[in-house]
Nucleic acid binder design. Structure first.
Ligand SMILES: [Mn+2]
Ligand SMILES: [Mn+2]
Ligand SMILES: [Zn+2]
Ligand SMILES: [Zn+2]
Lengths: 135, 135
DNA sequence: TATAAAAATGTAATCGCTACAAAAGTATAA
DNA sequence: TTATACTTTTGTAGCGATTACATTTTTATA
């Protein structure tokens, strides 16, 4: 995704008041592009924001979802991950190193089969396997 | 998917002892092709099997997963659904009627982008939108 | 400043799922 | 058949992620 130069402006443009916590959560999502869980975000940020509450992380991500600047990545059924890249792209999770890779998808290559005339709002492509490093 | 004529034989062939509960859970998955949650399976089957325990449904699905005769459908982050059709196909969830539609995918049409030489074990394509009936 | 509104925080409650032990059912051999 | 071991099911207790909600803190406005 195109790097978000000014987080404050980006949040404002998306109808979100740029509080300190919100900016730090969004910054974390965009700098590390690691599709973190709520717990991961919380554990990393509390190192630098000792007063941070996990509820705030939940509240913030919920708001970001409503405003459409983050999406959920549901690869595993027991972990919810978040992604500040809302453009169309696929996710690959390596079953050995657990790393999640983004990969490009050509929109015109997507095979919508017999639902092609339904109204399509979101497309999610998730792949599991073994990455190059672990093969 | 090709209809499973004899559930007992099918389970045995997949190294699963065909207990009454296991057969009924598998039968439910294949007859109604509605991608049910654990709770849905439990609530439906307990009507006819009054002694059924929800733990048994969890145990059974876990076993089916390990033996590879069911897959998980992770469209929403707060509901885990199960599918006895393990062949490659896509899922569409209508945001209005909540119905889940299967649709065919041509394996050769899948766009693996820059991960095409990774080892691919599972491919999941999930679409959200509005179905024809609800448009 | 004073006041009101918004955001962050901490705690309690909820819910899906798992762990575990006891009960029920099934297979095997004397 | 009957005894014994093994498998499966069941019920309960516990865990962990998420949400609800009241309180505190921060920010905006007069
Ligand atoms: Mn991504
Ligand atoms: Mn399906
Ligand atoms: Zn790897
Ligand atoms: Zn619909």
């Amino acid at each position: 995704m195109t790097k978000v130069e000014n987080i404050s402006e980006y949040l404002l443009k998306n109808d979100i008041k740029p509080s300190y916590q919100r900016m730090r959560v969004f910054e974390y999502l965009t700098s590390k592009q690691n599709h973190p869980t709520v717990d991961k975000i919380y554990k990393e940020l509390i190192k630098e924001i000792p007063t941070l509450s996990k509820t705030t992380v939940y509240n913030t991500l919920k708001l970001f979802m409503e405003k459409g600047i983050v999406t959920v990545v549901n690869i595993e059924d027991n972990e919810v991950r978040y992604d500040a890249d809302t453009s169309l792209h696929g996710h690959f999770k390596c079953e050995k190193c657990e790393e999640i890779y983004d990969f490009k998808i050509n929109p015109s290559n997507i095979d919508y089969g017999e639902i092609k005339n339904f109204k399509i709002n979101e497309t999610h492509l998730y792949i599991k396997g073994v990455c190059d490093k672990c093969k």
